[in-house]
Amino acid sequence: MRQALYFFWLLPIPLLSWIATIMYRRKQHFFYPVFWCYLCFQCLRLVIEFICNHISYKVYFYVFWGSSVVNFVLTMLLLRSIFRTVLENYSSLGRVRRVGYEITLVLVWFAALVLTIGLMHSAGWPQRITRAELIASFTALAMFLFVVATSFTLGIKWTSAVCGIAAGLGVMGAADLFVYTAMSWARHLAKPAAIASWIETLAYDAAMAIFAVYFLPAPLKSPPPAKLRPDLLAWADAMRGAIRR
């Protein structure tokens, strides 16, 4: 069982490095800089966490929770970049684009904080950390829903790459919220933690597979645009004028 968990734990490393390399070679890291940084960070995180897991539990503990904080910040930045990219072509939505995400983030954060007060059975460190993760996962999923709902409500079409990024984040956010909500009901965290790590690992792998599906295949080469010949355009304009007269 442990070997299988290690296998699924390490499975995304080659996939992530492949996606990051392919994106770099296609110069997509200029179009999606935050996502590219996110991929590189995930790749490094998996390697470092795996090594630390074999060094000592204490080191692994600090590395895991430290990287979880960085991961949360990067996820928020990624959602913010999606939100801004989606709305950037609409001048009438300038104010929403500038402050909408930040205001919603603060509101959701406070709502999560208030709603989770008194949720844990005891106030030990494991429970405190679980609560912090619960607030983070609630905020991440709520912000994901906010970004998608804003776009759907405004009727703005997304490119397939943005859909892929958002879908991957959605899968991870949903798994996190499910796991940490379930753990908030548990009195002892030892046994649920084993099941939780399986759910988290599989959801993480699924999210990375979604990223791979959207970013690894070569982009469809559209036929070269037929050049509009200036003489034909002038002829069409002349004909249009003649018809009107």
Binding site: F138, L141, L145, G170, L177, F178, T181
Partner: peptide
């Protein structure tokens, strides 16, 4: 909180399906 989280989970799954479908 649990009820709200459950609702958000369902909404999240539906949105992911919608995103994957186009």
């Amino acid at each position: 909180f649990t009820a709200l989280a459950g609702l958000m989970l369902v909404a999240g799954i539906l949105v992911v399906i919608r995103l994957l479908a186009g």
